[in-house]
Design a protein around this nucleic acid. Structure first.
Lengths: 244, 244
DNA sequence: CAGTGGTCTAGACCACACC
DNA sequence: GTGTGGTCTAGACCACTGT
């Protein structure tokens, strides 16, 4: 346990984070198998040469990551490493990229329109104000996977078709300096119309996953509204949840 | 701002939480409209009569709830109150209950079986060991909504059919002293078979939502595996996400 | 430059679980 | 009891953002 821990107090990375990573690595490496009881935090703080509040912050980070569980009067135990928080929210693009399926995007349209009553309501802008309307076809391994419709308030930024072909919308927004804060989404299902089936390489009546998502920035302003359909044969939503 | 705050230092509820709730209520009540910049935390701590670390912990709680945003060198701003973390993981039962649609459950079967290879793998128990297999039909407003299949390791606990008819499985587990820690789930879609359609009051080929969920306890042991189908006409998954 | 949140320390007391 | 994590304090220094 008490083996060589190297803390760099000159580093810009916080002490508590260095400590947390050290413990995390010990867990991941299997040095602390699941169920192991860690020393109490005062002892740990002494071993690692930090103050107790700093040690606590490190532990709180690990609890938040789901790696350990703490109980007053009992102690700190290591949870199974395979149980991990993940995903929570990521774009389809990121998902596919992560698993090595180089996703491709074809921009079907990228225009500026006057907001209809519906879209204005969803974006929280006046009816008739200019909005960006994007339609994309997402594929992986030359198979179509999803048709993505997005609306963004045009007063906030512009998105080039080229950029959309090479990266995900959220990636692009972040790089444009938009601070994403939160999102709400609804996942449902329905059957494909003939046109949708043709576009996604399915047959009419095939099951589709649907997702509507509204994303907000730090101010609580709507950044983006998306209305998407996915081939259920080729895609599903994976998520992990903590603190049930 | 500095109006009557009543902190009860004798209360078992922590100071930082009392402070957080006070600020939260001010935000909810509209006294601090969206975008409002809060005083800096030292000033706030002085106003409320607590130390700075306690004030910080209160603010961290509000950040975690998505109510405020903090930026070093800038300050703390109030986010739109309508943007809220919610749901994340809740059972269908809880969802329906919350919106006033008194859900009902009919237990189709509740047996103890020898684990098949598949189920044993999913639950992390030896093949052939006893497992609880539950099948339920969930309805709301006299309309069937979902068919729920669950497996639990029988060595851990027992669930009565009566209890299952009156409360959600997760509720029941919690009340049995099981500490739920995390879960992973996969949401997909497919079309209904004739039997499924009959059961859910749909027609053959209708779109269904599917969900598989594995829930873990504090030790990282599998508590429950569920395989569910939902009428897509009458149900969808709602979730909010923070820190995109 | 001044003002903000982020980090870190040293110490104290308390509530809870287990023996 | 004894040991654990949970709370709280008073103060210090630092990193970043804006002027």
């Amino acid at each position: 346990m008490a083996h060589s821990i190297t803390l760099d107090r000159g580093s810009p990375v916080p002490l508590y984070f260095q400590v947390a990573q050290h413990v995390e690595q010990s867990i991941e490496a299997g040095a602390l198998p699941r169920g192991t009881r860690l020393p109490n935090e005062i002892e740990l703080a002494k071993q690692l040469g930090v103050s107790r509040p700093t040690m606590r912050k490190a532990m709180e980070y690990l609890v938040g990551k789901g790696l350990v569980v703490r109980q007053r009067g009992v102690g700190t135990r290591v949870v199974s490493p395979k149980v991990r928080r993940s995903l929570e929210l990521s774009s389809l693009f990121d998902d596919l990229d992560a698993i090595g399926q180089r996703p491709t995007t074809r921009v079907l349209s990228n225009t500026i329109e006057d907001a209809s009553a519906d879209v204005a309501e969803l974006l929280g802008v006046p009816k008739g104000s200019p909005v960006i309307a994007i339609s994309r076809l997402r594929s992986a391994l030359d198979q179509p996977i999803a048709r993505l419709h997005n609306y963004l308030s045009a007063s906030r930024l512009s998105v080039s078709t080229d950029a959309l072909e090479t990266q995900g919308l959220y990636q692009l927004l972040r790089r444009s300096g938009v601070q994403l804060h939160s999102a709400t989404q609804v996942i449902g299902a329905r059957t494909a119309t003939a046109a949708e089936a043709r576009m996604l390489g399915e047959s009419k009546g095939a099951a589709l996953l649907t997702m509507q998502r509204t994303a907000y920035d730090d101010h609580g302003t709507v950044v983006e509204y998306g209305n998407h359909i996915y081939s259920a044969l080729r895609y599903s939503f994976h998520m992990s949840l903590l603190s049930i």
